[in-house]
Every structure is written in structure tokens, then in C-alpha cells.
Write a protein that binds this DNA or RNA. Sequence first.
RNA 1: GGGCGAUUAGCUCAGUUGGUUAGAGCACUAGCUCGACAAGCUAGGGGUCACAAGUUCGAGUCUUGUAUCGCCCACCA
Length: 1023
Amino acid sequence: MSIELAARELPTQYDHEGAQNRWYPFWKERGYFHSEPDPDRQPYTIVIPPPNVTGALHLGHALNNSLQDILIRWRRMQGFNTLWMPGTDHAGIATQAVVERRIFEQEKKTRHQIGRQALVERIWAWKNEYEARILGQLEQLGCSCDWQRTRFTLDAVCARAVRHTFFRLFKDGLVYRGKRLVNWDTALQTAVSDDEVFHETVSGHFWHFRYSVIDPRPGEPEFVSIATTRPETMLGDTAVAVHPDPALALAEAEAELREKLAQASAKEKPALQAELEALAERRRAVLPLLVQLRDMARAGRKVRLPLLDREIPLVADEWAKPQLGSGCVKITPAHDPNDYLVGQRQNLPMINILNPDGTLNENAGPYRGLAIPEARQRVVEDLEKLGLVEKIEDREIELAHSDRSKTPIEPYLADQWFVKMDRLAQSAMDAVTDGRVKIVPPRYARGYLDWLGEKRDWPVSRQLWWGHQIPIWYAPTAGVDDLARAFAGRDDVVWRRDEEHDQWLICALEAELSEDAIPGHKLAREVDVLDTWFSSGLWPHSTLGWPEPTPELRYYYPTSVLVTNRDIITLWVARMVLLGLYNVGDVPFRDVYIHPKILDGYGEGMSKSKGNGVDPLDVIEKIGADSLRFSLAYLTTETQDVRMPVEFECPHCQALLEQTKKNRMLPRVECKKCGQSFSTQWASKPLDLALPRGAVVSERFELGRNFCNKLWNAARFALMNLEGYVPGPLDDDELAVEDRWILSRLATVTAQTTEALEGYRYGDAARALYDFAWNEFCSFYVEMVKGRLQDPAARTTAQRVLAHTLDALVRLLHPMVPFITEEVWQLLGQVAGERGLAKPDRAADSVMIAAWPEADGKRQDPQIETRFARFQEVLKALRDIRSRQNIPPKKPIEFAVCCDEATARLLGPMEPYFASMAGAKATGWGPQVKPPPSSISSRAGSTEVFVDMAGLVDVDAEKARQTKELKRLAGAIAAKERQLANENFVKRAPAEVIEKERTALAQLKQSRASAEAALAKLQTARE
RNA sequence: GGGCGAUUAGCUCAGUUGGUUAGAGCACUAGCUCGACAAGCUAGGGGUCACAAGUUCGAGUCUUGUAUCGCCCACCA
């Protein structure tokens, strides 16, 4: 069969599924993804932000990984030795919470009923399932990861890095154990970090209580008033605070308010005014009392804590704001972050009243054993009986909730492990400040520096079962000599005194210490595990084999770029920088590229916990990974997040159903149009899964789909026309005008694409290629070359340029659309195995390993591009006239162009193309051209195109158009004349700008004259 | 409360050092099955560039303020 016939049999629609199934295994089998250190080549390395194994990937991940793959594929083609390190994150608390919830739903068992070992086994099973799914999704996306190096943050290699890091930190005194107030999740019974807490407004109350002053002297108040939103915490009160200088504090508050008032808008003023008056009133009414209480506090006076009958001191502390409430505040150091600070400052006892499960402990006296809500109710009732409740207000409260269990957070005093941040944080700040790590876009550096600048110690222990167990053993009874004897000669064991608990802390590097490692004493293993960011913070070097000085570590580290989103700049990026510097002595990556976020149709970020994450799987199945990837790249611009409204496609009637907030995560949906139900990507129960599957799609991906299809058909055209292709050097003298033009454009676009990718400007690169491929290659080059492909004399050169241009285009597009470009590359290889202009070469076995095109500056030809611009203008004018006058597409027309000599010379060689592309025959061009007696005109820049109508004119339509045009011109001329009449403009604007404006005005006037003439002629024609 | 970003066509978004009366995709209208492509081709309609003031010969672009939306951080006994 001839090549042409074979090509004709290719489907007119790109078969994405076939290409994906063909080429991914092909690449993988040939080892293209794999990288080995090679000192002769320059490395280019990316470590994947390891996705959590909590669930399947969504479109946000699809974006993140597409962008990485684009960089990796592009750099690979540029000749770098590229490594893309894949893997997944155990995601400690998140994964454990998901699995615990699942077990509770299905078996009604808590983790304590199941036990540590069994639960961990269940989580491993979950991890295996989702890891496989996630890695499969990455493959479907086309990611060219080095799968042989796949890591998991909890695997043996990463575990070893964790042990070594912790050991070093412990040895250097950078990790310590201490009591701190933590966010306690009473459901999961673990501390959670600030980042795992969200606030929700709930309606609650504000209770005002009285504590009686002990032995009030004459003139002294008998009570102090305090207020709280959590009455039960009063059981843990250890003081009542009043401001040390209430007068000054009030004055300052007033001054501040006045300043605000001075700058406030009229709308805000009344409220501020009222506030100011209230403050003045307070100064009169409350201040004396506060001063008195302050003096009492200084004298060491006490109040009686009701219910528990405890004496607690009055203290003077700035935390008590005289402008708020009664001006006095109860202090519960063990259950409130601010009170905790007061407790530290004032040396107050810290009384913990809670058990880990959220019930009250023995410190709560008679309330012991009650859960918080009951305790709250009882405390209020009992205080009411004592007449100590002043009033109860309704109030909206921003209540902290755990992100994981969705239950309220209790501030809770617990022993935790911390990493000292001062030195480490500083090192990470310096790395960004001095440019060793470059954050793109640069505005994100600020948040990073601010956050690190606080240098808050990092709480790293979690009371979980899923994670890296902290390698610490407690020796409460042993003495320092026992330790020295037991671990004599071992440099893999270090110990440190824990004064607070009067015990030794022992850290072992890799060995597990047995209970009786110290003869005569019992060791207890720390049961807590490390924060998940501890192990992911090591990711860039742990995956490369650290602490071993592996060839990989030496060669690939520091990695080239980290591609991630802004949510985890502090949590993760900052930790990687400081731990990388600490462990390896160098930054983990040169660049950090922060990409946009994918938002759902309601502007909310996609996340697994919110449930609005859309699995890209439906999109890939429906329109292919290439379409998805190209669309995402096209949408990746610098400042704008990507809003991605999605729809369900009913499998019964193909209706598109909007994804609403309500239905967005439902396992089954009922079609509004046909009434039948279908399952969605969230289905998990057999009953739902049995239904036909409705895909989640978004019309926003049609851009990519249409583009891929356009590319596919351009390739089909080329293949159909490469019969008899003979490779050979190109003779520049034989190049037609369209050849020179497309080669010029190709050189420019190649440079633009490369430049855009270098600056992580994906959207620019995608746009440049989209416009070139569609509007230049397809719409003009292919159309213009058709004639020569039928002409035996011109065919060879035309084929060579066509094959070369397609070849280059496919290469440029490969990083974004890997599958279709490979498909085309392989097909092209069959008919044109050797390609290239000056000296054709055998094409690479795969476009994936083909060389990235270099912009050939010598091919850039401004003159030919100007010629094309003129040509395109005239062509558009002709088509415009044809369309407006309803001249049938096939009816030949004749036209003349009135223009200057230079333009005439440019247009001359284009004559045949007017015939082939607009069915129009030129009768003349130049300044001498006179309009035919019956003609329609259209202006294009400085030229005017006349089409000989010979009785075809639709007079009314044309008159309307010319009138409208005249109006537009009048406006434009007026604007220009105004500008040119402005003395300042003429005086100050650069000469070239003025000249440009003058020329433009002259042109506009000329256009107006011809429009008037045309209109006049139409009037006559009518009569 | 502090910080960051946004506001341009019905929708989703581009718009470079300030320089013709502002562009794309989708949607819409009209016409096209001509040997690459109807997921297409050709043409068209559609915008007071959020608002106000300022700088400038000239502002979508720079400055200030206002409004609205989103995100991050902190805090609210």
C-alpha cells in the first residue's frame, strides 16, 4: 500500500488510548526513564513532592506532576542526565485518621480495641493499595519518573536517614523533651500541629463568674469578676490577673483609637466614636477598682477558687487588658496558650485537669471522670447555686477543631519532643537571602523568611502509631555510671539527662535497645512517632542514599528544582532546606518553583479532606493525558490560580450535570435530565459500582483536546504527502516564500519556547506553540504548500521543509504532550526516517531522546515576515468581502489592490496564493490602481482592496457596513487629531512616536476618503 | 489585626520597559462537507479594563485611596 493510502487510513481523530498504551511501555522498557550518575554529563534532578498515601491523586497533583514532567522531558532532550525521583509520603496522622475512620465505620472498632500492631498492619495494607494507585495515576499521566528508584518515606532507606538525623540532632543538643501546651485531639488522642487545626464559628456563651477575695479589708472589693467561654477550665485556674498599669494601658488604648478615628472613613466613624466613649466611661467607672486590685496583687493577696476551694493569687500581668471585660482575667496555664505564657512569666503552678481522652482527671476533684460538656454544665450549675454567676451572654466563638477528627481541640499540657530552631532556621533563611535557593515567583520568599524568622521550636512528636518511632529509651532508675558501663565503647548510643523527670534519655543510632540493655535497670521505649514532615524534610537527600556517601548523593545533590504549591512552603520547603543544610551541608535544590493552585468551580482549593478533589482519571480516559497536560500547562500563568469547574457526564443520556457543592463527592448521582442514576469516581460500594460510570469532565480541557486533534490532523496531512520523500540537503534557492516564512517563524518560536521554559513560564510556552502550530503551520503553511506538493518539480523541497517543520514542532511539543508526539514521531520515521535541513540525520528512536531544537537565527527573516503580514491582511479583506456579500465560497472573484510601491512589490510573489486560499484573481496592485466600476472595497492598513462585484453587490448590507466603518473612522480621527493638536504631546513625546501618530492619522484620513467614495458610489448604484 | 494576590467580553483567562480605539479559548450569530482536521474552516457580534483621585504629552499598564473576592499568618479571657 502506498504511504498516502496508509496515512489516509489513520483515524481523523487522535486515538489517545492507543498511543498511551503503545508508548509508555515502550519508553519504560527501553530504560529512558532511568538515570545513573555519569560524571561526563550534567545532571538535572527533581525529587517529586511525594503524594500522601491517604487517597487518590486529584487535578492539583496532575498539574504539579505535569509541570515536573515537562521540565524533565525538556531537559532530557537538551542533553542533561535527568533524574526524576518518585515516591510517596506516609503522611502520619492523615493516613492513620483515614484508616481509623474506615475501620470504625465498617467494624465499629477503635484503634485501642484493635491494638497497635494490628492497626499498623491495616495501614500498611491501605498504603500498598493507594501507593499502587497513585503510581499508576502518574504513569497514566505520562510521567517519566525513574521508577527503579521509587521511595516511600517510611521505607528502610528513609527510616535509616530519619534515625541518623534524629541521632545527630540529639547528640548536638538540638532536640529536647519538654512540657508544652499542645493542640490536643481528644478523639485521636494525639497532639496535632497548628497547621492541622482549623477554626469554625460556633454559637456558644460567655459566662461571667465571681471569685471571692480572701479576707477583704475595708474598702476593698469582696469579689473579682472574670469571664470565660469554657467554664470547666476554671478547675485548672491558678491565678487571676490584672494589668500592672491599668491607667497607662487604658490611655494607650485610647490614643490608638483616636489615631484610628482620625484616619477612619465616615462609615466607620460612629462605631469608633462609640468605642471611644465606652473607654472614657470605663476610665471613670472601672479604673479605680483595677488600680486597687493591682495593688492587692502586688501585696500578694489571694482569691478563693470556688468549687475546689483553692486559694489562688492575684497577679499583675500585661495579658489582662483593662479595656476588656471586667479587666480581670482567670489564668489557666495548662489549658490556654496565653495563660500558659502568663503562667511561665509569673511562675504559676500548671494544673492539668484533662485525661488524654478528654475526660476530667483527679485534679478536677468531684468532676473527675466527666467528659468536658458534662463538666461544663455541672460547673455552671454549681456556681449558680453558690450565687457566683453574674451573667451569661450568647456569643459566636471561633472554636479550634482538629482537621483530622473534626472534633474540638483542647489545649493540653503534655511532654513533647522539640527541635531547636534558632540556628537551623537561620541557616535556611540565609540560603534564600543570599540566593543559594531561588524562589520563583520571588514574592513567596517573604512568607518563607517571616515564618522562619520567628524561630519557633518545632514540635516533632506525635502520639500516633503510624510513623517513625522516636529512637529514645528512658532510663528512670539507672545512674550515669550504669550507662557508661553498659554502652562502653559504643559511639552509636548517646544519653542526656532529663532534669524535669529525673531520668536519663538514651538515643541509639540504628540499634534497637532491649529492655534490659542496662543490667539491673529497665529501659522504656518512647512510643511516640515523629511528625511526618520530619521524614519528608529529608526527602531530597534520604532518597539519594544519605547518610551513605553514595555516588547518587554526590552526583544528583543539590537537585535542580523543587516544583510545589504555596501551601507547604513553610511546612515542607523550609524544613528541607534546613535539614539538607544540617545533614549534607548544602541546599537541597537550586530553584523552588511555586505553581498556581487548582480551584474547584467555587474557588476553593482542591483537597482530599474537603472531598472536592477531582481524579484526573476520567479526563485521561475521555480525552487523554496529552489534552489534560496541555490544558494545564496553558493555564499555568504567574499570578492566577486555575479555576476548574467540572461537570458529571450522564452515561445514559450524555447530559452534562453541574457539579454542585452538594453533589460534588457523591458516589452516585441521579441525572436531572433522564432521571437515571449513575456512579461516580467516588463510588466504593458494590451497589454503586454496579451502575454505569458517569465521568467527571470539564470543558476547560477541550482546549487541549482540540489542539491535540489539530496536531494529529496536521501530521496526517504530512504523512499523506510524503510519498516519495527523499532526504537531502536543502537548496536555499529553491525555497518558496512560505518555506522561508515558516522556517523564520519556527526559529522565533523555538527561541520563545525555550526562554519561557527557562523562566518556568509554562503558559507562555504553551501559547507560543499553540499559536504557531495552529495559526501559522496549519492555517497558512499547510494550505500554501499544498500546490507544490502536487507539482513534481517543487515536491521534493516542499516535502523536506514540511517534514523538517513537523519534526521540530513535535519535538518542541513533546514535553507537554508526550504521547501524541511520540505517535507522530514514529509514523513520521516510517516515511521520512532522515530529516533535517542542511544535513539530514537519522531520526532518534524516540522523540523522548531526540535533541531539543535550537533556534536558527539565520533563518529569521524580517522581510519575509512583513510580506506575510501584508499578504494576510489582504487575504482577510478578501474573505471579509466574500463573507459579507454572501458570495459563494467557490465563486471566483477578481480584485485589485491600491497600495504603495513597496507593498506592491511585497504582494507580487503572493499572487498564486490568493487564488488558492481565497479563490481570488488579482488584476493589479500599486498606487495607480483604480477601482473597477462596480466594486466593494475593504481597507487593510495602508492598502485598499477592491473586489469587482459586477452586479453581485448587496447594496443595503454594504451601505450599512460602510456607514458603520465611517463612524468608527471619524472617532479614531478625532482622537488622533486631538492628540496631535496637543502642544505638550508634540513637544515631549519622542519623535518616532509622533511620526507614527502622523502616519496613522494620514492613513485614517485616506481610509475615510475611500469609505466616503465607496458610500457615494453605492448611492449612485441604487439610483 | 498583619501580609499576599486578584478584579479586563456571557464564562475561563492573556496583555512585555506606559505608545494606534484592548486579545485568546469556550459560548453566541451567519456561511461552508473543497482530498489533513465538523474536536474543523471562513467571517461576524460582544468590553466605560471594579470605582475614584493623582503622575504623564499619553494609563488596562505607574502612585494613592475605596469596594469586592480569594489565600496565608496571627488573635479573640
